[in-house]
């Protein structure tokens, strides 16, 4: 198992090197940053001096190595637009995105697994049919449309919930949170639903399919034949056996909740990294874009690593270390 972990970590590092390369190439291929930074009135001497300062006169490989070295320390240089440390800007924006992603993820997981089990067990029930039909809406409507619809109903017509922003936040020094104020919590509701709905329907349909598959297995029949309670059969025996594929997909989905919060953040003007990224794209603020890219890839790789390790916790068959097993 240790060998497996080491191998997976090595693979993760390789993935990060490749995305790092893509992020780094943006600096070279998307325009010349020096021209942007110095503006119209510049001399060749200014340009050369800045190139020297930024290390742009060095060979490509050296530049890449330096970029990686800096990136590994969380240093992505200055934002072209704001003139501040990119890492500081990200750190300031990240809590908003992570809190939103956390609440959406919870919603997607809880709702997805709960409804998935319900619709698998009561396959022919009315509630199942209603949920399955509604889930089609969740899968097929684009995120921005759901967001706008929610804003229209709950903010414009009913006036219950705010249509944009984070509400009041409490600054804890290293973290700003909207969890501690009423307006912060209210502001979370609509964006969290918008962001989590698609993932929820996806997880729900997956859990349902897997669950129906498992419920047909012999060991479920055998559990019935032993007179175990339905609750124990459904949760202890069936649900656990659906978890491996569900966790795989869920892990990827949680990653994409953070990564693709961009649309939701734009619709709700949520002051997170997604909105930051969209603004950076508009201004060709490459250091911010590169840093965002690296941050997302670190998150994806990290989540995948955790998912792989969770397999071992769930399925004892994978834990066999050369011990006699198999068939």
């Amino acid at each position: 198992m240790l060998a497996y972990i080491i191998r997976r970590v090595a693979q993760s590092i390789l993935v990060l090197l490749v995305t790092g390369f893509v992020a780094f190439s943006m600096f070279s291929f998307v325009g010349d940053p020096v021209e942007n930074m110095l503006g119209q009135e510049r001399t060749q001497a200014d340009v050369d001096r800045l190139r020297g300062q930024l290390g742009l006169d060095q060979p490509f490989v050296v530049q890449y190595a330096k970029f990686l070295q800096q990136a590994a320390q969380g240093n992505f240089g200055l934002s072209y637009r704001q003139g501040r440390e990119v890492s500081a800007i990200l750190a300031e924006r990240l809590p908003a995105t992570l809190e939103l992603a956390f609440v959406s993820g919870l919603l997607a997981l809880g709702g997805g697994i709960g409804f998935g089990i319900l619709t698998a067990i009561r396959r022919r029930g009315i509630s199942s049919n209603v949920i399955m039909t509604l889930s089609l809406v969740g899968v097929s409507l684009p995120t921005f449309l759901i967001g706008i619809l929610l804003i229209y109903v709950f903010s414009v017509e009913l006036g219950w919930l705010p249509s944009f922003g984070r509400g009041e936040v409490v600054d804890l020094g290293w973290w700003t949170t909207g969890f501690l104020t009423v307006s912060g919590l209210k502001a979370l509701v609509l964006p969290a639903i918008t962001l989590g709905l698609y993932q929820m329907t996806l997880i729900m349909r997956l859990v349902r399919t897997e669950m129906m598959e498992v419920l047909r297995m012999d060991y479920i029949r055998f559990a019935r034949a032993r007179g175990l309670r339905e609750r124990s059969i459904n949760f202890r025996h069936a649900l656990r056996n659906t978890l491996v594929p569900v966790i795989t997909i869920t892990g990827l989905q949680l990653g994409s909740i953070i990564a693709f919060a961009i649309i939701t953040e734009t619709v709700f003007q949520w002051p997170g990294v997604g909105l930051l990224f969209i603004n950076a794209v508009q201004f060709v603020d490459i250091p911010v874009m590169a840093a965002y890219l690296m941050m997302i890839s670190v998150m994806f790789v990290g989540i995948n690593l955790i998912v792989d390790l969770l397999y071992f916790a769930i399925d004892p068959r994978l834990r066999v270390d050369g011990k006699a097993g198999g068939h």
């Binding site: 012999d218 055998f222 034949a225 032993r226 656990r240 399925d315 004892p316």
Partner: peptide, 25 residues
């Protein structure tokens, strides 16, 4: 019916590879 199963009548299935839950000891 559930109270009878296991307590008063038991069943053995064909394939021992699939009739045990793989995730529980």
């Amino acid at each position: 019916l559930r109270k009878l199963r296991g307590r008063h009548m038991g069943m053995i299935f064909q394939d021992p590879l699939t009739s045990l839950n793989p995730l529980l000891t």
